[in-house]
Design a protein around this nucleic acid. Structure first.
Length: 310
DNA sequence: AAGAGGCCCAACCGCGGAACG
DNA sequence: CCGTTCCGCGGTTGGGCCTCT
């Protein structure tokens, strides 16, 4: 953590000898009190006004962050529950690193918190998980169906996960015991350009346009809970059609203090997702080009969060 | 016991977009 | 329009704590 600015003497000693310099670093309890009192009495307005009017030697940005991530009364504290964990994983598979979007679906949790949780706990576990699986290069590299994709995008759920392989079966047994692992089984893994391991639905990794057919029930698919592995080892995730929408009301309610300005650009374009037989047909499908809000209307409620493979 | 190294997480930074004058 | 300011987001940093040796 950052130490408080030396000139400000973590609370007591400072006052007005700060010669207009804005403080940085950790917030003192006194600063917290000031901000909290101001916010409770005046509500949220222009953050630079908040900083000024509350008598804080902080920039508005810092005040905003402190309020959102720490002082907000509706914040939930403590460790993430396994349900929250599952939800985070699931949402991340849908949304990628859109932490604020994910946080909006977890009442009482902040994007920062979720991001930290992901970058420490979950990422680490996914890493351990993948390192426990034999590399495609070393196991059965002769298979033409190996789906080896490093680099910026591409699913790292390769074809050696073929259910007939004994080694992969062992890996799967290992994975199934863990919510993250089983989710990875279903949704695949993606290594993003920043090195993050993401569980990403197949259709989000495509960068082609126009009418992708997303196979759902092919004869040779590998089914795993919500997801389906296609013939080429790629993983398909069906749209969120059969899940509860109760979260939506909850999240919009708890985030009522927040102006709903984000993702307006994204919402300008909508996805055409229609079911045709056993296929989901998607028009103009590209990362960030569908109506996220609409898509996320169907984010599973906690009750439906069971990613364990039967 | 103590030093090293890793982890956690609060807070900062930089950027892009929206709002405003 | 255009420039400026504000806001929110995601990525990154770094200090304190914990664990290991």
């Amino acid at each position: 953590m950052r130490k408080p600015e030396p000139s400000s003497g973590a609370a007591a000693g400072n006052k007005d000898n700060n010669n207009n310099k804005l403080r940085k670093g950790l917030w003192s309890p006194e600063e917290d009190d000031k901000l909290m009192n101001y916010m409770l009495n005046n509500g949220q307005g222009c953050w630079s006004d908040v900083a000024r009017n509350a008598g804080l030697q902080r920039c508005g940005k810092s005040c905003r962050l402190r309020w959102i991530n720490y002082l907000r009364p509706d914040l939930k504290r403590g460790a993430f529950s396994s349900q929250e964990e599952s939800l985070i994983i699931h949402l991340h598979s849908l949304l990628g690193n859109r932490w604020s979007q994910i946080a909006a679906r977890l009442p009482g949790r902040t994007d920062n918190e979720i991001k930290n949780f992901w970058n420490s706990t979950i990422k680490k576990r996914l890493k351990n998980l993948t390192s426990s699986i034999p590399s495609p290069n070393t196991s059965d590299s002769s298979s033409p169906k190996d789906h080896v994709m490093g680099g910026s995008q591409g699913i790292i759920m390769p074809m050696y996960m073929d259910s007939s392989s004994s080694s992969s079966a062992m890996a799967m047994n290992h994975m199934i015991n863990d919510p993250i692992s089983s989710h990875v089984l279903e949704h695949g893994l993606n290594m993003s350009s920043n090195g993050y391991l993401n569980a990403v639905p197949q259709y989000m990794t495509h960068h082609h346009h126009h009418h992708h057919q997303i196979g759902v029930c092919g004869d040779h698919s590998f089914h795993g809970g919500n997801g389906v592995f296609g013939l080429d080892g790629e993983m398909f995730v069906p749209p969120l059609e059969s899940v509860s929408i109760e979260e939506k009301a909850k999240s919009t309610e708890t985030n009522g203090y927040k102006k709903a300005t984000s993702n307006t650009t994204m919402n300008n374009r909508t996805e055409n997702l229609s079911r045709i037989g056993n296929y989901w047909e998607v028009d103009e499908l590209r990362m960030g080009e569908w109506d996220l809000e609409e898509l996320m209307n169907d984010v599973p409620s906690f009750a439906f969060l069971d990613f364990q493979v039967q």
